[in-house]
Design a binder for these strands. Sequence first.
DNA 1: AGCCATTTTTAAGGATTTTATAAGGAAGCG
DNA 2: CGCTTCCTTATAAAATCCTTAAAAATGGCT
Lengths: 223, 223
Amino acid sequence: MPKLLVVDDDLDMLALVRAALEKDGHQVDTEADTAAVQPARCQLYDLLLLDVMMPGEGGFSLCSRIRAEVDCPILFLTAKAEDAALVQGFGLGADDYIKKPFSIAELRARVNAHLRLRVRQTRALSRGGVRFDIQAKMAIAGEHTLPFTKGEYAICEHLALHAGQVFTKEQLYEAVFGLDAEGDSSAIAEHIKNIRAKLKADGLSPIETVWGVGYKWRKDIVL
Amino acid sequence: MPKLLVVDDDLDMLALVRAALEKDGHQVDTEADTAAVQPARCQLYDLLLLDVMMPGEGGFSLCSRIRAEVDCPILFLTAKAEDAALVQGFGLGADDYIKKPFSIAELRARVNAHLRLRVRQTRALSRGGVRFDIQAKMAIAGEHTLPFTKGEYAICEHLALHAGQVFTKEQLYEAVFGLDAEGDSSAIAEHIKNIRAKLKADGLSPIETVWGVGYKWRKDIVL
DNA sequence: AGCCATTTTTAAGGATTTTATAAGGAAGCG
DNA sequence: CGCTTCCTTATAAAATCCTTAAAAATGGCT
């Protein structure tokens, strides 16, 4: 469950925003005191919503103070409609800028869009000529489905989902089968061999081996 | 330089958007025909800007058609101000929704914010014409990835990360392979030779030798 | 400038490590 | 049982790393 922090001096606004975002099943913390918003605390959250106009430290100052140490999306919430302020906000490393008055629907849509950036695409994805149907746990190349076993599919999906990233055999084993990687890494090598053989039947070879490290799904740059 | 694609049936709008975004140094391609927007083509871009209301296939349909195979941010550009449309847009996997009429400043700010977000997530750095993808352990020059071995990449990354700083062969060996530098320093010389050869194939020579001391990555001159 | 000692660059070969392949066995399931 | 899936083991193949030695470059010296 994503955790969000909303910072605003207006308590009514805090309540409103919290109610809106809890409808999407998020855990929402609120804070009216900017002094209580420290980098270490922010690292606990998946997204920050900051009001721009606050007594004491404003949202812009707050953002620039914590941005360097906080990796999550930061969204501004503001009545300032001027372009200059908006540009300034983005310049500080903000990820979105929602103008008041905003609709609840827009707020929820924007917040969810930024959260989804992290866990993009859970339905279907297509990489390197292979289409994955995550729900059906099927991999399709061209017209027919690839005859992967359950384990083979899981390895494939994990590699394709994180295309470009290298995984050691141990990491793969743990990510796919959940257990400790004590189960020998040569098992993964065996799976990789079988996967490659089945992909090769369709003229595909998206799995590269990074010597001394592990395997990765080729990040395709197609013309 | 980031590459952007703008899709809109209104040629005036295309010209306007292109002019605005080129001010930030982006390379902007435009397209008025939605049929010409195929997933393979979109994978070449770092960001897509789609108009919602277009004759034939609309922006929403276009987005859902390509989203599964396209990884980059997708921004909608629209006159439809209704919340329902906005929520639908985000639901299709869009990353932002810019309402017309928009200011040039806001457009630029939002586009840049999304481009920057991407850089933050991929943890990339670019030095001396070489782009390092730390996660993927890949070095990219121009269009293709450099065929570095694990050790060669590690040396390169270390030098590039500390551009301008000189390292003796022993320091390099210890920093990269962790062990004591007992392993002869001439091994490093051999690696440096191979690295330079591979870089030279792309017309690059960022590694300088400091006579009697060691090697360093030429420090970029930042404007 | 010319020469020498030192350092770096280059080249080739073998040693070591890592991966690919093939064959076989244990566990689960109809 | 027969079948599939997963894992183990053993061997072959491949790639990397290191060593060695010779060629080239550098800086200081007379």
